[in-house]
Design a protein around this nucleic acid. Structure first.
Ligand code: SF4
Ligand code: SF4
Lengths: 134, 134
DNA sequence: CCAATATAGGACCTGAATAGTCGTATTTAT
DNA sequence: ATAAATACGACTATTCAGGTCCTATATTGG
């Protein structure tokens, strides 16, 4: 319970790697996968997703790869999570899926307090930048 | 991702229910399950676990049930989670399962920053008591 | 004593979500 | 042209949470 998904972990690792080295440098999914011993196809998908949302730039073809598209100081972990996980619920499903998603919604007594936890968690991830995890 | 398990939610709901009403009162798993429309067997197991670790008292036999064993002011949500989930990992598995659990442990670069998140989350749940969620 | 009602707890089934794999198309530098 | 890279959809496998079922044991009250 409460684990970060591998996809998010892999994404963070890749972003951190890019942020650590001189900007503009291009990294291929292959070399990153090898460096960190991550399944290539899986990492590739994550990078594609990050690229699609403009978080990193992709260069196709020979000598292509990925390069950091944003200042790592301004890139929050929360943002990365949101992109990779899309709108997956955190803490409690009813927050995202609505009242119908939970059969005990209208008698549930812990929904509100959990909201507080959720907010605090958001703040935590919002404040944490890629630069910070280097 | 990052969801509280149903078992924890059910446990919190039951504890909250007990904490709301006069102390000493006995509740059966059956009536709680009905009241909140929770699967009886599942709730029963959660309550058994809470009873085993002394968090609530159990009375067997006819007219038995459960009764709150502790001051709700002193009972933290963190404690409840730890009892129900035992030593399930939060945030990242390597914290509990050790280095061998993750193939990229020794090249992983985000382990330490995730530790910070974990600590903050612990603080959050530690501070939150059952009394508080009433 | 006996029947009813409750907890105790193990075994099992199921479906959904995650992790990982494969195949193929497309792009581009050389 | 070829090789090396991204793009992307479809597929498989594994894991885990949620839920169910069954039996044993304890306790009360008639
Ligand atoms: S209504 Fe309550 S039990 Fe249901 S998902 Fe929301 S917080 Fe959890
Ligand atoms: S070593 Fe890194 S990737 Fe592996 S479980 Fe720990 S934090 Fe996650």
């Amino acid at each position: 319970m409460f684990q970060l998904s591998k996809r998010v972990e892999y994404g963070l690792i890749a972003l951190r790697h890019m942020a650590m080295h001189p900007t503009g440098q291009v990294y291929t999914a292959k070399e990153l996968a090898k460096e960190y011993d991550i399944p290539y196809e899986l990492l590739a998908k994550v990078l594609q997703k990050l690229a699609r949302s403009g978080l990193i730039f992709s260069l196709q073809g020979v000598r292509g790869g990925y390069t950091l598209g944003q200042d790592p100081n301004k890139l929050s972990v929360a943002h990365v999570i949101r992109i990779i996980e899309e709108e997956k619920p955190m803490i409690a499903e009813c927050y995202v899926e609505g009242a119908d998603s939970c059969s005990i919604f209208d008698v549930c007594t812990i929904r509100k307090p959990l909201g507080k936890v959720q907010r605090n968690l958001n703040i935590l991830f919002d404040k944490m930048t890629i630069q910070e995890i280097i």
